[in-house]
Computed example of a mutant assay.
Amino acid sequence: MKQLSLVAVIEIAIFAAISLILDLLISFKISSAISISFAMVPVMLIAFRWGVKGGTIAGLLWGILQLIIEPSTIGFFIQPVMEYIIAFACIGFTGLYARSVQKHAKEGNRPKLIASIVAGVFIGSVARYIWHFIAGVIFWGKYAPKGQSAFVYSLISNGVSMLGSFVLCAIILSLIIPTSARLVLRRA
């Protein structure tokens, strides 16, 4: 497997830290269980630039930083691993569309570029929120309103969070990447 260059490693670390800062400063809390944020944008940019590997490492690093800043003790070891380590690393699946985004960015094919961006953001968002959904059923279901199953509670709260964050990230990246293709095109 090809190793990442020093440039990639530095960019991954910086963009993971930017995601952490965005998440801490700008997050729209709709309720205690629903939060919409565009903090995934830097990690998704890395995934479009360096592929699944780079995006996964950036997401993993962001998750670890998040755990250090805001430790979670629900479910002891398993819940934080699921919701911070695995879930955040899964944002890297956005990179499945890295080649397509890079190709269309080089060609200047805006409609195909935006379609690739949206598809990649959707894959990364769903991959992350599947883990939040599972953790919601297992660990957070006890907070469901009376008469509502843990499954439905997690589906609604994580579904709204995922859809809101997906739409926000897709819009932002669809505005940024076409106007500044160098963000996803690499030299090293």
Rank of each mutant, 00 (worst) to 15 (best):
M1G: 13
K2Y: 10
L6W: 05
V7M: 08
I10T: 15
E11V: 00
E11R: 06
I12H: 07
I12T: 09
I14N: 03
I14D: 02
F15A: 09
A17L: 12
I18D: 06
I21R: 06
I21W: 06
L22K: 09
L24D: 01
L25K: 10
S27M: 09
S27N: 14
F28V: 14
F28M: 14
S31N: 13
S31T: 15
S32R: 14
A33D: 13
I34V: 15
I36A: 02
S37R: 03
S37C: 04
F38N: 01
A39R: 05
M40T: 12
M40C: 07
V41E: 01
V41I: 14
V41A: 15
P42Q: 07
P42S: 04
V43H: 01
V43E: 08
V43K: 00
M44Q: 14
L45N: 08
L45V: 15
F48L: 07
G51P: 00
K53Q: 14
G55F: 06
T56Y: 04
T56Q: 09
I57N: 02
L61N: 10
L61Y: 11
I64H: 05
I64F: 13
L67C: 02
I68R: 03
I68A: 02
I69T: 14
I74Y: 08
I74F: 08
G75V: 05
F77D: 01
I78E: 02
Q79N: 12
P80R: 04
P80N: 03
M82Q: 05
E83I: 12
E83T: 13
Y84R: 08
Y84A: 04
A87P: 01
A87F: 07
F88W: 11
I91A: 13
G92L: 06
T94S: 05
G95Q: 06
G95D: 05
L96E: 09
R99H: 11
R99D: 15
V101D: 00
V101F: 07
V101Q: 00
Q102R: 12
K103D: 04
H104Y: 13
H104P: 03
H104D: 03
K106F: 02
K106H: 04
N109W: 00
R110W: 02
R110V: 15
K112D: 11
L113C: 06
L113Y: 02
I114K: 01
I114E: 01
A115L: 12
V118Q: 08
V118L: 07
G120Y: 04
S125V: 03
R128L: 11
R128A: 06
F133V: 00
F133M: 00
A135Q: 10
G136Q: 03
I138V: 15
I138L: 10
G141M: 10
G141T: 08
G141L: 10
K142V: 11
K142R: 11
Y143W: 13
Y143D: 05
K146S: 14
G147H: 07
G147K: 08
S149Y: 10
F151A: 09
V152G: 06
S154C: 08
S154I: 04
L155Q: 03
L155E: 02
N158V: 03
V160E: 11
L163Y: 06
L163V: 15
L163I: 15
G164S: 05
S165N: 06
S165C: 14
L168E: 09
L168I: 14
C169A: 15
L173F: 10
S174V: 01
S174F: 04
I177H: 10
P178D: 12
P178H: 09
T179A: 13
S180A: 11
S180V: 07
R182G: 02
L183E: 13
L183M: 12
L183N: 12
V184H: 05
R186E: 11
A188H: 13
